[in-house]
């Protein structure tokens, strides 16, 4: 054995868990998705928001701002969820198909690191796209609310007093760019994160991208409807036998209650969400990410490649 090899053998002590390796995988995943030109979706998003602006003719400002918010949040949620599910489904099965996975796992990389790295990469992509979308959304909202204020002032024939302008501003802006909207943005991210974790789990046992996408979408939709279904079966939360409770719990774990994340629906209608509820939403997301990562790992660690 030559000297160099021996040096490596001595110095290159293997680390059981390495954040640097995870980060390398995450960044690679992110770069890969970025270079797949996913950010072209921003063009569609911009078109949607600007298109929504054109629909406003003949509506009150309250409706106009609401439609703008609805379309923006709807599109954000749609894109984020698509990225979460399709992005995740594209990555792992493709790595396996192309045998790229072999080259990674034959490096000293534990399988859990690979999974976490992929998940973080997707989350990073989702976060950046949501950031871009919300910046655009907020910018349009800001421009519109000032535009509406100017139109309002111009529409009044007489001299408008400072106090009147102030009250217009107050009533228009309170339906425009408000800090609470950030909670909606965060909730969109949390929901997409859970969807990504679900897709990650599915892709650990699925053999193809298509299968992963379909199964994840099914879970996604059932997750939205599960609360309804449980309500229906158990007459508004009254569960009697232990069996029923177990069944409901099982449904709850397998199908995350995605409806809980639809904070934006309420926000655009002018409702208020408490910080404690928001904090618990974050906690719930963390719970799902952990559970799904662990289960994914259990499946993936034993997977025969």
């Amino acid at each position: 054995m030559d000297q160099q090899a021996q040096d490596i053998a001595i110095s290159g002590k293997h680390r059981v868990f390495s954040l640097l390796r995870i980060w390398a995988i995450s960044r690679n995943t992110f770069t890969q998705l970025v270079r797949m030109k996913v950010f072209y979706f921003m063009l569609i998003f911009s078109a949607l928001i600007i298109g929504a602006n054109l629909l406003f003719l003949s509506f009150t400002f309250e409706q106009e701002l609401k439609i703008l918010k609805d379309v923006s949040f709807g599109a954000m949620s749609l894109f984020a969820s698509i990225f979460a599910i399709v992005g995740t489904a594209l990555l792992i099965p493709k790595d396996l198909e192309d045998r790229t996975l072999y080259t990674i796992l034959t490096k000293p990389v534990p399988r859990i690191e690979y999974l976490i790295g992929k998940l973080l990469g997707i989350l990073l992509l989702i976060a950046v796209s949501i950031l871009l979308m919300s910046l655009l959304f907020f910018a349009v909202l800001y421009i519109r609310q000032h535009g509406i204020l100017a139109e309002k002032i111009a529409s009044i024939p007489r001299q408008v007093s400072e106090a009147d302008i102030e009250s217009f501003r107050e009533s228009i802006f309170s339906r425009g760019l408000q800090p609470e909207l950030l909670l909606g943005v965060v909730a969109v991210f949390l929901k997409a994160a859970v969807a990504a974790a679900v897709a990650l789990f599915v892709s650990t046992f699925a053999s193809s991208t298509l299968f992963t996408i379909i199964v994840s979408l099914v879970i996604y939709f059932i997750g939205h409807a599960q609360a309804l279904a449980l309500d229906f079966y158990f007459a508004k939360g009254e569960m009697h036998s232990a069996g029923q409770r177990f069944f409901a719990g099982l449904i709850g774990v397998v199908f995350p209650n995605f409806q809980l994340f639809n904070v934006a629906d309420g926000l655009t209608a002018g409702e208020v969400i408490s910080t404690s509820l928001m904090a618990r939403l974050v906690g719930l997301t963390a719970f799902y990410l952990t559970i799904y990562s662990l289960v994914s790992w259990l499946v993936f660690a034993k997977k025969e490649l």
Binding site: A227, L228, D231, G237, A248, G249, G252, V253, N257, Q259, L260, N262, V263, D265, G266, E271, V272, I273, S274, L277, R280, L281, L284, F287
Partner: peptide, 22 residues
């Protein structure tokens, strides 16, 4: 899941997200 049911109830108490398609 119990946590989810709790949150759901609280959402409803706050008058938030209380919706089922009639």
């Amino acid at each position: 899941m119990p946590l989810e049911r709790d949150m759901e109830m609280e959402f409803k108490e706050q008058g938030f997200r209380d919706w089922s398609p009639g």
